[in-house]
Amino acid sequence: MRMPSSPEQIEERLQAIREWEQRYFENREMEMGSVQELQAEALSRLPEKWQKKLIEGVDRFLFYTQSMILNANVQREVEERILATARVFRDDITNIADVRKLTLEQNQFIRTQVVAKQRLYAFGQGGITGFGGPFLLAADLPLIMAINLRTVQLSALAFGYDMRHPAEMMIALKVFEVGTSPSGTQYQGWKELESEEENIVGDLPGFYNGSEQVINEEWLHQPLRQIGKLAMIFMLRKKLIQGVPLIGIAYGAYSNYRLTQQVSDIASVYYEKRYLLERWHEKG
């Protein structure tokens, strides 16, 4: 298969993405309900000073986690696997940016290969949390955040966006924010993502000229939802089937899997759309 080589073919694929956006965000809006209203009420009772401290703390955690992942040996290993797969299709691939030389179908194939395990990790991690132990419950939120941040990073790499570039690091964090946001606020964040390329300054490696705050007040609904999930798991820990809290395990696994699937969808479509728009401008 060839990458869409004409403006008409690129436009056809972009139209399919626009239809996906309409369906997806309409469904997100329909999911808004009493739970989110209760979360908003709970947040409104939290003093603004503490909301600000919480936002700053989450931002620091995300920056630290992203830096730790990108400097780990596993990052270099996954980059080498992506490059090795890309060279099966083209022998002139030498770095991550060259991955954009591949056809769209080839980029999608690579992304599927590297991201599939992330949903399994989320499923397994959620299942372990379902045992309901204090340490496991406490570790759930930072672990699922790290898994989903990694999901975004892998999606970017599969479409040829190098996470070592400062601007790409910031954009990945903002894709993560949209993917993990409550359903009712995702569309606004998605529209803001579409203009993020304007904040890239200079040639590669580009610097970032936009806001460096990632998390906002609306995003704080997500940890409240996670706390509600953990409370449910804690209550289910005594409902044993042959000595094992199977209901809590199933609930934790499903909840984390669903969140990672949501992040995966957002990241995949964002980077594919960005990739196609770049091809469009090149041919325009």
Rank of each mutant, 00 (worst) to 15 (best):
G206H: 13
L276M: 03
L149K: 01
V269H: 04
D162E: 15
E19V: 13
F131G: 07
G210L: 05
I233P: 01
G243W: 03
Q113L: 11
W280H: 11
M30G: 09
G252Y: 02
Y271W: 12
I110Y: 02
E26H: 15
R150I: 03
A231N: 07
F109R: 09
N107G: 14
P134V: 05
M169E: 08
E192L: 10
E194N: 10
D59R: 03
A138S: 13
I144L: 04
E31W: 13
F234P: 01
K283Q: 15
V214P: 01
A267G: 03
I215N: 01
F25S: 14
D203V: 15
E217P: 07
R237E: 07
K191L: 03
S67N: 12
G252C: 06
R225H: 11
P142F: 03
L277T: 13
E194H: 11
R225I: 06
H165W: 14
G210D: 04
W20G: 05
Y187G: 03
V88D: 13
G160E: 05
L246S: 08
D59F: 02
V35L: 12
K273A: 07
K101L: 12
F63I: 00
R60E: 10
R23V: 08
G132L: 09
K191D: 00
E37H: 13
E217C: 10
L173S: 00
Y251L: 05
E11N: 12
S264C: 06
K117G: 11
V78C: 02
L236T: 00
K273L: 05
E21W: 07
L224P: 02
A122N: 05
I247V: 14
S34C: 08
E272Q: 14
W50K: 09
Q75N: 11
K101V: 12
I147W: 01
Y208S: 05
L70S: 02
G228L: 07
L154C: 04
E194V: 06
E177S: 06
E168I: 06
L137F: 08
A97H: 12
D203I: 14
R225T: 09
F131M: 11
W20F: 13
S181T: 09
R164Q: 15
A167S: 14
E212V: 08
G57T: 06
A42F: 12
E197S: 09
V88A: 12
G202C: 12
L149D: 00
Q188G: 03
F123V: 09
S183W: 14
M169R: 14
H221R: 15
V114S: 04
Y270V: 01
M30S: 13
F63G: 00
V35W: 13
I266T: 04
K283I: 15
